[in-house]
């Protein structure tokens, strides 16, 4: 059963813009991206929208639907009443390029600041080995599709443009945590996470976890463990003393990157 859906889509560019009203026929089982594609096909051929897989796996179609950061392709129309007006804007933490497309290059700049995986030398047979239990620990983090919804909703940069140079954001704390928990990595990134990545600015209000379309527990499993690792290094005199006396902290054997 089809019905006419009322939509408000943000149209414009860096010079300015605003919300425009559209009414478009939609069908049962469709998602917001389907409706936008129909607007594009029938009423606004020059409407810019970034998308790719339409399966919630490429992370391209991130936008804000009724003020909430979501994937356009994973937001079903039957989540709303047929009489509701659905408002779609581009991500509001990043510079707009045109219509629903934003410039997310901030995230790629931050990705370049994370030192790459630096593995230990291989075993005598030329292979490196990890036990399954250690492999599993990082699997959750590798589900990230880099949609940057967590970055978009994080108030540290969303509400404070001036914090962008000093703050990496939840997606990259995920990366810091993944590498810091890796038994074969030789880098110690704790100081870097504290200083250059600004993990201390995160006040763990869990918005990143709320919006993650992959259901990654970003705050509980990545940010807080990483904060605790920073505490080990910089705020806990007992851990510091223990590492000096018995050198049992495995991170002692790693190279601190700053």
């Amino acid at each position: 059963m089809g019905y006419d859906l009322s939509m408000r889509l943000w149209r414009g560019d860096a010079e300015g813009g605003g919300l425009e009203d559209f009414t478009v026929e939609v069908s049962e089982g469709e998602v917001v991206l389907d409706a936008i594609h129909r607007v594009q096909a029938t009423q606004a051929g020059d409407l810019a929208v970034r998308w790719n897989c339409k399966a919630g796996k490429c992370g391209s179609c991130s936008a804000e639907i009724n003020g909430r950061p979501r994937l356009l392709c994973m937001t079903r129309l039957n989540d709303f009443e047929e009489t509701d007006t659905i408002t779609v804007t581009p991500l509001r933490a990043f510079p707009v390029i045109r219509d629903l497309v934003t410039d997310v290059s901030y995230n790629y700049e931050k990705a370049r600041e994370v030192p790459a995986f630096a593995p230990t030398p291989p075993d005598a047979d030329g292979k490196r080995r990890m036990m399954q239990v250690d492999v599993e620990r990082g699997q959750e983090f590798r589900k990230c599709i880099e949609c940057f919804l967590c970055q978009d909703t994080c108030h540290v940069i969303r509400d404070h443009e001036e914090n962008k140079p000093a703050f990496a954001g939840p997606r990259f704390f995920l990366r810091y945590a993944e590498l810091d928990m890796h038994p074969l990595d030789t880098n110690d990134r704790r100081k870097l996470a504290q200083d250059a990545a600004g993990i201390g600015m995160c006040n763990i209000t869990k918005c990143c976890t709320e919006v993650c379309p992959e259901g990654i527990k970003i705050t509980d499993n990545a940010i807080i463990p990483m904060k605790e690792r920073v505490v080990d290094r910089s705020f806990d005199p007992l851990v510091w003393l223990g590492s000096k006396i018995r050198r049992r902290d495995p991170s002692d054997e790693r190279t601190e990157v700053v």
Binding site: W10, G17, G18, L19, T89, R92, A93, F94, P95
Partner: peptide, 8 residues
């Protein structure tokens, strides 16, 4: 911020 979409 002026670089972002002005939603009002």
């Amino acid at each position: 911020d002026p670089s972002r979409a002005q939603v009002g």
